[in-house]
Design a protein around this nucleic acid. Structure first.
Lengths: 139, 139
DNA sequence: TTGCGTGCAAAGGTTTTGCATGGCA
DNA sequence: TGCCATGCAAAACCTTTGCACGCAA
């Protein structure tokens, strides 16, 4: 890989900074655009999209597919270099990192029994956290 | 729920039939449109979309969010009432159904050790299938 | 007869592309 | 200086909406 992130520009830096300011947040391209603008760091929307794409390819960000139909993709700071699975609460948005032996075992099983090499970077599990499960039942 | 699929029409029936003909396939709206057309059962694209939406709401189909950016949503016959996890190959799009004891065990572990109730309907694992893994290594 | 289903055309939204300019190294 | 990054406008793309008509019940 020789075509490494070649130049360092104000715009690119601004996008990176924004995500570092809110490491837990999932932002849409539009939100990135708006938030930067609010900080006085105006970046063209095209450049926002291109930066997001570049940062995802470089592994700095993670891209989450849009859920609904009129929805848009969301981006988040890649939690850490070491890969592990994450689960997100569909109700409150809480994110939990799943690094434990069982996950390795799970990955192994998928590889051996199903022939798939699990990509932890792209996979996001969805469910309900303890609190939101409780609230759901009370309804 | 009283607003059940009220009328039975040729078009709606054609869409349902198509998915029953290929219970394992994940089809895009465009593909549904094309395949029906090839069968001589032409259905307007708008109607395809509306049928897919209706069938998803009724639980007959499952909707998978688009992966890439220029991508589109995919629909599949809801395999059965019992839910199970799926893994999709990010390279070729192949889908594998993961129904086995280990998955139940995995779900249990997430519940007990991490407090999350996994939602198998919303979760999609991503990775590379055996073939695509091999191709990747050869590069 | 009632009102849902259909289909065309047009609009909606997000994301990409063409192209000239600007700016990093 | 060379080349990548930027940004505007326009296009591409999937999907939804408006509206008149058709058709199931």
């Amino acid at each position: 890989m020789s075509t490494r992130g070649s130049y360092q520009t104000r715009q690119q830096e601004a996008v990176v900074q924004l995500f570092h300011q809110r490491p837990e947040d999932c932002l849409s391209a539009e939100e990135v655009y708006q938030l930067l603008d609010a900080q006085g760091l105006t970046v063209g929307k095209t450049t926002v999209y291109r930066s997001l794409t570049r940062l995802c390819e470089g592994g700095a960000l993670r891209r989450y597919a849009p859920q609904g139909s009129g929805d848009c993709a969301r981006f988040q700071l890649n939690p850490c270099s070491e890969s592990h699975l994450h689960i997100r609460c569909v109700a409150c948005g809480a994110l939990e990192h799943l690094h434990c032996g069982e996950m390795e075992q799970f990955k192994q099983h998928i590889h051996q029994s199903h022939g798939f090499t699990l990509d932890e970077g792209q996979t996001m599990l969805y469910g309900r956290c303890k609190e939101c499960s409780r609230k759901e039942q009370t309804k």
